[in-house]
């Protein structure tokens, strides 16, 4: 089975670990425990074409800027989920710079932008954010909404990229 490395990136406290836990173990913890270093886990997903892909997911410690993440962590990554917190505008202030940095660092990597903590914001806020950024998914790690879908979409895009044209 093909394995691919996926990174969860974004500011601290945006819910990367919660998304990771929800996707891998289908659990949610209300407590906030900051991630130290990295946590790596894997999950096999079934793709749209019924093939299977193993995602090796790296949940890294949040940083205000992605340039501060140890640069070796990015090596070999095929996909990135860039997460921001819908309730904290400071977490989406650097989206453009961060995405540009990641695209320059990993030109062939599939990057998806995720607004998390949907359960805590109004529909108006979501629409406002959507009008500003090209968001791929609005998720809630707490309710599990869109979590599986966004990982699956990422896996399908990664797989499609590996196939000969």
């Amino acid at each position: 089975m093909i394995s691919k490395k996926v990174m969860l990136a974004g500011n601290f406290g945006v819910g990367k670990t919660s998304l990771f836990n929800r996707f891998i173990q289908d659990i949610f913890d209300e407590r906030y425990l900051t991630t130290i270093g990295v946590k790596v886990d894997s999950k096999v997903v079934s793709l749209d074409n019924d093939d299977q892909l193993k995602l090796m997911i790296w949940d890294i410690a949040g940083e205000v800027s992605q340039t501060k993440v140890p640069q070796t962590y990015w090596l070999g990554a095929s996909g990135i989920l860039y997460v921001f917190d819908l309730t904290r505008p400071t977490t989406f202030e650097r989206i453009e710079e961060d995405i540009a940095f990641l695209k320059q660092k990993l030109p062939d990597c599939v990057i998806k932008l995720i607004g998390n903590k949907k359960d805590l914001v109004s529909t108006d806020r979501i629409e406002e954010v959507k009008s500003k950024f090209d968001v791929d998914a609005i998720t809630s790690a707490k309710t599990g909404e869109q979590v599986e879908d966004v990982f699956l979409a990422l896996a399908n895009d990664i797989y499609a990229q590996t196939q000969p044209m």
Binding site: V38, V40, D41, S42, M56, T72
Partner: peptide, 18 residues
């Protein structure tokens, strides 16, 4: 799970070296 071990070992290795 050997996949997770491999990933974590690499993460630790990269972290220390970095």
């Amino acid at each position: 799970d050997p996949d997770s071990v491999a990933g974590m070992l690499t993460a630790i290795k990269l972290f220390v070296e970095d």
